[in-house]
């Protein structure tokens, strides 16, 4: 452990001689030991998935949900210290609510990510607080409809000035996926992974080629892939049992109608079966290879 700060790591907001904030780096360590979380962004929607390690047989299955909704069409999943994750989700909800009150419209995901990133970064500035021990993956769908304003009563005049822009070349809305780290740094992603099994998960996500414009992954395929990747990432903690949680947000004409929802039970079961089968398939291939040798 070469980086035992020698005095520069006892307080938040303190720079070490080589320009590091050790408390933030230690916070990242807390994230690294948490359950794996991933997000996949496709043209048709976003999928979030979470590996919930079962710490006790006494836990009620299917109840302790880790992926939370912010406003209606965004979801947030955190890896690391779970109470800090709830604090961040709470803040996200407050930001969305205050945006709605000011602008009478849902918060665009880029603005939400920016607000949350700024909030997390603020907790790295003062010694009277500690950094968040979570990395958050934020996914959602910005509505493509001319949604008007909250509380709108009518549609306005059908012709003349002050009307809507019905020009089809004006494109609005679409999928969004962001990942925010304990330092407050965040980027937009096509595929994001954090937690214990992130290396394995990242490798699998790269194979999906999500950023290519020819990527033909449908939303349902993304759900199946997300489940499979969690199972692959779980290999790192094989000795412990886990519960898979999957959520998705589709376009307005898709299965969730633009809302962030948990994946329906049938699809969840199908995804788990598909994931388990492909893992077995891999094992069989390995056995075949060995036999051939």
């Amino acid at each position: 452990m070469t980086s035992i700060g020698t005095g520069y790591d006892l307080s938040n907001s303190v720079f070490s001689p080589d320009g590091r904030n050790f408390q933030v780096e230690y916070a990242v360590k807390a994230v690294e030991s948490g359950g794996t979380c991933i997000g996949i962004r496709t043209k048709h929607g976003v999928v979030l998935a979470c590996e919930k390690i079962i710490s006790s047989k006494l836990l009620k299955p299917g109840c302790n949900k880790r992926i939370s909704t912010v406003d209606r069409s965004a979801g947030i999943v955190t890896s690391g210290l779970l109470p800090d994750g709830r604090h961040l989700t709470s803040r996200g909800r407050d930001e969305a609510s205050s945006w709605r009150q000011t602008y009478k419209a849902p918060i665009p995901l880029s603005s939400l990510a920016s607000r949350l990133g700024g909030y997390v970064q603020a907790y790295t500035l003062y010694s009277s607080v500690r950094p968040f021990g979570v990395t958050a993956i934020l996914g959602g769908w910005d509505s493509e409809a001319e949604s008007g304003v909250d509380g709108q009563v009518g549609n306005g005049p059908a012709a003349g000035a002050g009307g809507k822009v019905d020009d089809p070349s004006v494109k609005r809305g679409g999928p969004a996926l962001y990942m925010i780290e304990p330092s407050g740094l965040y980027w937009g992603y096509y595929g994001a992974a954090t937690g214990k099994g992130r290396q394995a998960a990242k490798a699998e996500l790269e194979k999906l080629d999500l950023n290519s414009p020819d990527c033909a992954l449908s939303l349902k395929d993304a759900v199946l892939e997300a489940a499979r990747i969690i199972y692959v990432a779980h290999e790192d903690s094989k000795d412990k049992e886990f519960e898979l949680e999957l959520t998705w947000i589709s376009a307005l004409d898709g299965p969730t109608k633009g809302r962030h929802e948990h994946v329906p039970k049938e699809l969840l079961e199908e995804a788990e079966k598909h994931a388990k089968k492909s893992l077995e398939g891999d094992d069989e291939d390995e056995d075949d290879d060995e036999m051939e040798e």
Binding site: S68, T69, R72, R93, S97, D150, G151, Q152, V153
Partner: peptide, 23 residues
């Protein structure tokens, strides 16, 4: 009054979004 109706509508929408946060 229609503007008061809009105010109440927004209030109830906020309530609905918050209720939706329960699991």
């Amino acid at each position: 009054d229609v503007s008061d109706m809009q105010y109440l509508d927004r209030l109830l929408q906020t309530l609905e979004i918050n209720e939706n946060y329960l699991s």
